[in-house]
Nucleic acid binder design. Structure first.
Lengths: 213, 213, 213, 213
DNA sequence: AATGAATGAGACTTCATTCAT
DNA sequence: CATGAATGAAGTCTCATTCAT
């Protein structure tokens, strides 16, 4: 007997797989062409299904975007929270791990659109209409902010800096443009880029004098 | 006889003023609603002219966006270059002045859309189609990169950091989201935000003072 | 062995019951929302079966409407003919009984859609496409026309009036709008309305009593 | 100088003519095929304009129907009220004139759709959604009801009959089906039909005994 | 027999762009 | 020059119908 949270049947499983495939494809096309320049027809064609089938899974194009954003946000949140709650690490180590996560392999697959949405006014307007950004996004920033405050309390980070400023800059360490420029054009390895960015950032926010000096 | 760059006549002057007004208005509406959600009709209506008149100045909606981007880029470039070529200042002072420029009063009026375009895939795709980003944008990044390299050469900045990484991060100091969060929601003064950001950034990229050890 | 017109088996009986239920439900929804605004999905959902099952009984949405019309027409015809062939009644008495029938309890359940179809161009066009109105409907009007002619021959009704005009007006005594206005809004009892309508109609078509002059 | 109610210019005149032409054409196609079976494309094609042009005049297909209904209702109301307020005529004479009006030349051109809408549940639902039926239609029925009451008060009509019943039946004297049957199939002249209908109706509602007998 | 996921034709509607006035 | 009515391509979404399970 399957557990209660598992798909009830093979049909249900197939359904979820197809839904995931639509999301995956939509993400690709949205990234390539942008939300407005993408037609449902094109997504359906790439998946290899009919237009109407997309609407069986998502009631509108907007809802497709919302679902995408939600999926990516939840993915990122769960991974970030896992890192944040790992014991025995300093705040800096955790934040650096998060940076690696966002900049690493995951980046190409999931976080791209996620960050595009974060920075594009067009998409933000759409998501705000659906009241989607608030809850999830707030959860993520809250988690990061706590890590930063924790670091300040522990004497790792400069306590005079407002955590909101530190947070804002931390979020801006990761950017699609930066990725394209440094990894795509300059040919740097993502891990290398992260190392440099972390070096600059954490040195920038470090507490002035360590007591032990 | 007027100089060659000046409007040849009163008519020409009026024409240029109207063009500037259209650009200004388009920028407002694009920022408010996003490029695709904005109709030429709405821009014309806000300016108080007919739709056809917009097309006397800009051959297409895309070209309107391009002109906007070009105007803003040129504006920023000229101001940035003015700062960059001011004598008797260190690289850090110059870069800090540029940061103030981008984050300051100007931000609300001009740089907003400029930065949105920079970060939104939808708009970048459009501009790349028109092959507009390259030249102007390259000029700006080149100018900044030189300042950073200059600083490294002068021993101000850590010479081990790739200038491209420093540049990328410098560009990400300014972000619409950050502005909205810090200035809009948290109520910080732009100048204050810049002071914090600069403090983190320049401390982060500062050269190690090995001599004093 | 069951007689030939009876269901051959329990399965067949069940099938006919389901078919009747679909018809009944379709009638309700068509009346509520109109034919075009009603989806097969909604009918199936209200019956509690799957969409495909509806198609096992009726090959298309149009055929569903046709079957509905046929069912109602046959019902009305059989009842009307029963009244028409009852012995020992005057034409007027028979027609009045028919009026009561159409306006009475039956009205809410069955005749509503029937009359809507009769008066709505949208539905008449559909039925004419399927060549359904002719036969059945002709049977009904023919029956009524004979009663009217019978009444004229018997000296009950004015022989100078064309029976076609009398028939047309008789048919228009019953109307959905009239029912809604008089019974629904004004709160008159259906029987009362029929009494008034019959009083006007039969007085209007009564033969002149020249002998008594 | 044109009067203030006249079109301000030639442009405006042309606009109104085209709008009338669209309405006229829409009415034809709606009558022929029914509202839902008619596409905006077809209306535009018949008028000889592009689809988009229809939308310059009417914001939606529904609004086109509403405008049509309003135009026809206003037309009928104004003519009916003109008759109702003509001096020196009995109520019966006035009502008979109204019947002639509705059944006459006007019928083919304007009143057809008007009456179809009145009797079709599909269209009534649409119009009720737009809250259009109430005001205008109420004005018309009120006017007729007053005439009937006036006739009762004057001793022309049977005072025992509820005016609402008389009104309802009066409205049902005119019907598209009846017109088609009697004028279209039987070949009776409209005026002749009206004469018969009026004869039946007014005899049916006549006061029992004229005092002068 | 029953289901309901999949299909795809077709409807409405928008809006960038053109052009006669 | 300026206008704004007209255009029609293109997009989103619905739903009657089919068919594999």
């Amino acid at each position: 007997m399957p557990p209660s949270t598992a798909p009830r049947s093979w049909k249900e499983k197939q359904r979820q797989e197809r839904e995931a495939l639509i999301l995956q494809t939509a993400e690709e096309v949205f990234c390539e062409k942008g939300y407005h320049e993408t037609s449902i027809d094109e997504i359906a064609a790439r998946v290899g299904i009919a237009k109407g089938t997309v609407y069986l899974h998502f009631p509108s194009k907007e809802d497709l975007l919302v679902a995408l954003f939600r999926r990516d946000t939840e993915q990122v949140i769960s991974e970030v929270e896992a890192i944040a709650s790992s014991p025995g690490c300093s705040a800096r180590e955790k934040l650096e791990a998060i940076l690696h996560l966002l900049y690493g392999e995951l980046f190409k697959k999931r976080t791209r659109l996620f960050y595009s949405i974060y920075n594009s006014p067009e998409m933000r307007i759409l998501l705000e209409k659906k009241k989607e950004m608030g809850a999830h996004w707030g959860q993520l920033t809250h988690c990061l902010e706590e890590l930063l405050a924790e670091g300040q309390a522990a004497g790792e980070f400069d306590p005079e800096l407002p955590t909101s400023v530190m947070l804002s800059l931390f979020l801006n360490l990761v950017s699609v443009r930066g990725y394209e420029r440094l990894v795509g054009q300059e040919g740097l390895a993502p891990a290398e880029v992260v190392r440099y960015l972390a070096r600059i950032y954490f040195k920038g926010i470090a507490a002035e004098h360590k007591p032990s000096c």
